[in-house]
Design a protein around this nucleic acid. Structure first.
Lengths: 227, 227
DNA sequence: GTCCCTTACGCTCCGCGTAACCATC
DNA sequence: GATGGTTACGCGGAGCGTAAGGGAC
């Protein structure tokens, strides 16, 4: 039993005859007749009464009408979904993130993407580090990932989105050197940091950690999105 | 988009790879690969991430999984129904009747048929006369009809089911001739007849009518099936 | 090397159309 | 004759398998 055969069958039923159905399907009458015969042969079951003039459904044929409509209906539904996906109207994008990545870039990208393709769902996956993130992108579990340079693989396409500038805000009167500020000078300094990153998804914290700077968490405040 | 292509697609998804899916489908690996490529070409849409090793669904592919399952599921449902019809497990038979036909033969046939094929539904259509009944059977709207001889067409297959004997019950003391009883002798005689035949679906009434016998309906009683 | 997917290439068979045939009206 | 369905037959293309190619590990 085939899609084509079911289409032929329903066309004959709906147009009450091979001739009219063939005109509607733009195939030769003989081809349609053959198709129906072939279907009946495969099913080992007659579907129509042959009464000289027109073809009339017999009980077995009547049993097939609704199931056939259902199959064809589901098929066009699937085709509609695929057309939507092709025209970027529906679907989803899975993107990977990592703790050391600032969420601002991801949020900005998501916002602009959503404004363009409002029906595309964005799935977020977070990985421990750039290595794992790139592995997952390579394995095909994410379409793309946001990470920091250097990217730990050569086989991925990379787009530089920009530099992110961080501002250190200090109390009035603090000595501000002209030379680049050394993170080491924050050793032991109480800092206002985010507490909304249970998995340390905070670029400042991870940078300080990389520099082995111990800071005293003087006061925590909420930042980022509130749930 | 084709049944075969959807089967191939789901097999690759479920077995996570062309190779294993091909073994399961008993086709060559290359044929399966071709089939998937062809499907993607038709849809103008990539369905898998090609990441060197295995094939992994991409978002468009994920969108197709459930619709494809639905199409194939409905298809096997249709095939099941057809198998049932072939094995006379489900389905229906439409039979035609006519007023002058005694319902006893129909009932007896229905009972024996139902005891053999309990899942086959019997549809009853009643027509004004043998002429109309035979036309409908010829047109394919009934599979068979119960009628009385002579059948008013040569193009139908006929099976004689038997003779139906009718008994005339008379008051004690009535003269009973040895010769065949003439219906004309019932002229004006009060008869107990059925009142359950609003459309005169009564073999006695129609026989008397054919003989132009006027009888006085002395008393009516219920016969046949009570609703 | 192994593993897995893809491409190339012939072959077979299915389904199409043309044309002839048959039946009914 | 007109209409409508079936059968006969040759052709083209779709899909298969074999074999070779290519990338990842």
């Amino acid at each position: 039993m085939d899609i084509r055969q079911l289409e032929y069958f329903l066309a004959v039923v709906e147009h009450q005859g091979v001739n009219r159905a063939a005109q509607h399907l733009h195939v030769a009458q003989a081809s349609l007749s053959q198709g129906i015969r072939q279907l009946e042969r495969e099913l080992k079951l007659s579907l129509f009464h042959r009464t000289g003039r027109n073809l009339v459904l017999n009980p077995a044929g009547q049993l097939l009408v609704e199931p056939a409509r259902k199959v064809l209906g589901d098929l066009v539904a699937a085709q509609d979904i695929m057309r939507g996906a092709r025209e970027l109207q529906v679907g989803s994008v899975t993107i990977g993130t990592m703790p050391e990545m600032s969420s601002e870039a991801v949020a900005a990208w998501s916002a602009s993407f959503t404004s363009l393709y409002s029906e595309i769902r964005i799935e977020l996956l977070e990985f421990p580090g750039a290595r794992e993130l790139c592995d997952e992108v390579l394995a095909g579990h994410c379409e793309l990932g946001f990470t920091t340079f250097p990217v730990p693989t050569e086989n991925l396409e990379r787009v530089e989105l920009g530099d992110q500038r961080l501002l250190l805000v200090m109390p009035p009167g603090t000595a501000t050197p002209d030379a680049p500020f050394e993170l080491r000078r924050l050793e032991g300094v109480p800092l206002v940091v985010s507490n909304s990153a249970p998995r340390e998804n905070d670029i400042v914290a991870s940078m300080l950690r990389r520099e082995s700077v111990i800071h005293w968490s003087g006061r925590r405040c909420r930042t980022g999105t509130r749930r």
